[in-house]
């Protein structure tokens, strides 16, 4: 249809709108909250049905590693916030440093998670295992939810790391600068969400015993 190929490139089709970009990010975070909200709903229903089993199963989780990971994630939220403050003050180097520390913390979180899950696997506690199937339904559900919810959260940590790595490159290449840092802000928002979800997961699985 109408094929005279005089492609006229329209310059700057994508305009810059920081408020709009943040608004879009908040809306996206809202959908993430609802995604996990579905999981929390399932958790609430089964906790109500199997209160005692959930209590018993929770005692088997390693509160020490959980606490350590909470501290790690909370601190990483601080460093990513400071990275934004640094770039606002035109301190590119400090921002890169703080962002790298954030990513490092994320790796530490995942390493802890790896050891925690492996320990559970060694004890034969994983979905479909003989050990677990011999237990009560409530405990099966608790560990099922434990793997699904912390697994989904872990997936978000990985996605967060990928996003932060991109932003790191952007800062190094001066695509994110002191007067144009909305990408870093949005990545920070995403990272805070990852942190926030963990703050709810931690007491629900490790602390209520």
């Amino acid at each position: 249809m109408r094929n005279d190929h005089e492609a006229v490139v329209v310059e700057q089709h994508v305009h810059r709108d920081d408020v709009g970009a943040r608004m879009g990010m908040w809306l996206f975070l809202f959908t993430e909250v609802l995604l996990f909200g579905g999981m929390f709903l399932v958790y609430a229903v089964y906790r109500y049905q199997h209160t005692n089993d959930f209590r018993l199963a929770a005692m088997e989780l390693n509160t020490g590693i959980g606490t350590l990971n909470t501290i790690i994630l909370l601190t990483s939220s601080l460093t990513v916030a400071l990275a934004i403050a640094a770039i606002q003050k035109k301190n590119k180097f400090l921002s890169i440093l703080l962002l790298s520390v954030t990513i490092l913390f994320a790796f530490m979180f995942m390493v802890n998670k790896y050891f925690e899950w492996s320990a559970k696997f060694e004890h034969g506690i994983y979905p479909g295992s003989e050990e677990l199937l011999n237990r009560s339904n409530g405990q099966i559900l608790f560990f099922g939810l434990y793997y699904v919810m912390t697994g989904l959260h872990g997936l978000h940590v990985i996605i967060g790391v990928v996003i932060l790595l991109f932003i790191l490159v952007f800062i190094i290449r001066d695509k994110v600068t002191f007067d144009n840092y909305v990408k870093l802000e949005n990545a920070g928002l995403y990272w805070h969400l990852v942190d926030l979800i963990w703050i709810f997961l931690f007491p629900l699985f490790y602390l209520i015993q």
Partner: peptide
């Protein structure tokens, strides 16, 4: 949409790993 997203994921996980979230045999 996110609610059906997680529901669908749970069914897939149920099929792959049998965690029991929607399986009456496992509670």
């Amino acid at each position: 949409t996110p609610v059906v997203g997680i529901t669908i994921l749970l069914v897939i996980i149920e099929r792959l790993f049998g965690v029991g979230i929607f399986d009456p045999a496992l509670g």
